[in-house]
């Protein structure tokens, strides 16, 4: 464990908590893409199956349980409790266009052709594009509530911090995983446009408005 990875995990946890609080407090999931949340749930379920087979550390196991539980709670709030506030019209990204290529790529480029490893690889590829429906929704509505932009900033920062973690681990432990690194770079790049808007607008107290 290093400071970059810990900061990344905490940023990830913060993002998930911000989202849950936003939906719970405002009793609305307006502006949030349910499809992205479905993809994140798939990412956690396919990646954290080793929760029952491999014990790495108490921290690792607890965080996995928290992420899966929070993801399930978010889906429950969005699709059951506050279903009426879910923005079906704007949340129209075709997630099969993300799922199918990730499955194919995971079958072609992986470290080991075993079920667990293929699922892990699929999860890594899917996570890198899972935010697209959310960014698509923000672009369609042309704006995002400030709490939603804080959520996106924390979520984008988590993988950016992981990039620093991978540089550190390469230098300090000569450990690297090209699949995770490649997907992490793609994932972080997808947020760049949003990071620019967040820093130039939201931090100045303005509303996040995308140029029409």
């Amino acid at each position: 464990m290093n400071i970059f990875r810990l900061a990344g995990d905490l940023s990830h946890l913060l993002a998930i908590i911000i989202l849950l609080l936003k939906i719970w407090k405002t009793r609305s999931c307006a502006g949030i893409s349910g499809k992205s949340q479905v993809l994140f749930a798939i990412v956690y379920l396919t990646r954290y199956l080793d929760l029952f087979t491999t014990y790495i550390s108490l921290y690792n196991s607890i965080m996995k349980i928290v992420f899966i539980a929070a993801s399930g709670a978010t889906l429950y709030l969005m699709y059951v409790k506050f279903k009426a506030t879910y923005d079906h019209n704007h949340d129209s990204f075709r997630i099969e266009f993300l799922l199918i290529p990730c499955v194919i790529l995971a079958l072609i480029i992986n470290h080991d052709f075993t079920v667990m490893e293929i699922l892990w690889t699929f999860s890594i590829y899917l996570e890198s594009v899972a935010i697209l429906p959310q960014l698509f929704l923000v672009s369609k509505t042309g704006e995002a509530e400030s709490i939603t932009s804080h959520y996106l900033f924390a979520l984008g920062s988590y993988r950016a911090l992981y990039l620093l973690n991978w540089i550190y681990r390469y230098m300090a432990e000569s450990h690297y995983d090209l699949i995770a690194i490649f997907a992490g770079v793609v994932q972080t790049i997808l947020y760049c446009d949003f990071f620019y808007l967040y820093i130039t607008k939201v931090l100045k107290g303005k509303k996040l408005q995308l140029p029409a």
């Binding site: 990830h12 790495i56 690792n60 996995k64 470290h111 075993t114 490893e117 973690n165």
Partner: peptide, 10 residues
């Protein structure tokens, strides 16, 4: 080889 790749990250 990578086969025994242990994924110790979240």
């Amino acid at each position: 080889d990578y086969g025994d790749q242990l994924h110790d990250e979240l």
